[in-house]
């Protein structure tokens, strides 16, 4: 089935037959519906796992209860009250979910600073190069760096635009070729890791 859908999608790219177009449109639709079903399934699995923790009074069950309460509140708000402006759903999103999410990720600023202080060492040529480039980019991309004259911003720009682009381009080409090989292996049934479990 993987092979059938895979080759059908590959062939329709090169042969724009009307029947192929219809199938193509439908398959695109199914991919989204299946993915959406997977997301809902993920939500249900999450709820079940917390329900088990709460009903079994396992360690940390009180946190699971909070998670379930938050989940239920959001589901009720969105499924019953709607998702338009002025709804409880968007209010919860704006005043609780988004700020919490942003704060969790802003913690990384502290950890990355601490990690840079403790671990960012010019131990050898490679590490020194990495460190110097990082510092030049950090300085060259802020207004204070620009106030020192054109040298730092220009150097930062050149490092990003020429050598860094070359390296990333090498990575992109490598990944591109690798991905094509993996896609073919999947379509030919050689690669079956997506089925899960033991191979």
């Amino acid at each position: 089935m993987v092979g059938v859908f895979g080759f059908a999608m590959l062939i329709q790219y090169f042969v724009p037959h009307p029947l192929g177009r219809v199938l193509y449109g439908r398959v695109l639709e199914w991919m989204q519906v299946i993915f959406a079903a997977g997301l809902v399934l993920g939500g249900a699995t999450y709820a079940m796992s917390h329900l088990r923790t709460v009903s079994g009074r396992r360690e940390g069950w009180i946190y699971s209860l909070l998670a379930l309460a938050a989940l239920t509140l959001m589901l009720a708000a969105g499924l019953i009250g709607g998702i338009d402006r002025g709804t409880l759903f968007l209010w919860l999103f704006n005043n609780l979910q988004a700020p919490l999410q942003q704060t969790v990720f802003s913690l990384l600023a502290f950890f990355v600073a601490s990690a840079a202080y403790r671990g960012f060492r010019a131990r050898n040529i490679d590490a020194a190069l990495l460190l110097i480039v990082a510092l030049v980019v950090m300085l060259g991309r802020i207004p204070i760096g620009e106030m020192t004259g054109p040298f730092l911003p220009d150097l930062a720009r050149w490092l990003v635009d020429v050598p860094a682009v070359a390296a990333k381009r090498g990575i992109l080409i490598g990944i591109g070729l690798g991905s094509v090989a993996v896609a073919l292996r999947v379509m030919l049934g050689i690669e079956r890791a997506w089925l899960g479990g033991r191979r």
Binding site: A116, Y117, F120, L131, L135, M138, I142, I144
Partner: peptide, 8 residues
Amino acid sequence: HLAIIVLV
């Protein structure tokens, strides 16, 4: 940025 550069 300056603070982190100094720390490094």
